[in-house]
Amino acid sequence: MSDQRPDNSILVKRLLLTVAGMFAFGFALVPLYDVFCEVTGFNGRTSNEAAVYQEVEVDESRTVTVQFITRNAKGIPWKFEPSIKQVKIHPGEVKVVNFLASNPTSSNMVAQAIPSVAPAEASLYLNKVECFCFNQQPLAAGSDAEMPMQFYLDPDIPDHITTFTLSYTLYDMTANTSAEQMAQLLKTE
C-alpha cells in the first residue's frame, strides 16, 4: 500500500526547511524592525549617524519648540542635563545645544546616551549634524564635560508638529569597556 503513497521524506524536508526559514525569520525581524522604524519613525529613535547638513531654505514663517529632557538609567551616578530646557527653532535653521555631564565617582567611566523623540513622528524630521550620542562618552573620575548636539529640522516637518521632546537616557557602559579601551578613550578626549 505504501507504494501508492507519495514519498514522506520530500515533504519532511520541505517542512524542516520551512522551520529553519521561520527560525531565521525570527532573527530577520530585528533588522526589519529597525528599517521599519527608520522609515516610519515608529519607535521615535533618531538616527545613529550624523546627517550631512543640506543647504535648505529656512522657513521663518514657522517656529517649532524643541524640549530637552534627560534621565539616568539605573546604576549611573553622573550628573547629566541639558544646558537649556528648550529652544524655539525655524525649520531649516541649525542650532547647537550643549549637554553637561559630570562624573562624581572615584573611577573612570564610560556612558552611552540613547536618544528618543516624542511624538515619534518628529524623529523623522530631526537631523543631527553632530551629537555626543553617536559615540560612547568617557569621563575620568571627578571630571566633567560639555557635550554638544548640533541639529536642524527638515523643512518638510508637518504643520501639526509644533512642539516635540528629545530625551536622552544615559547608560553606564563601563563594564563593557576594557582598561585599554578606557585609556584610549580618555586620551582622545
Binding site: 539605573k74 546604576g75 551616578p77 562624581p104 565617582t105 563594564a175
Partner: peptide, 12 residues
C-alpha cells in the same frame, strides 16, 4: 552610586 548591571540603584 549603585551597582552597574544589578538592581542596586544609585541612591545618591
Amino acid at each position: 552610586n549603585g551597582v552597574t548591571g544589578s538592581a542596586m540603584q544609585a541612591f545618591g
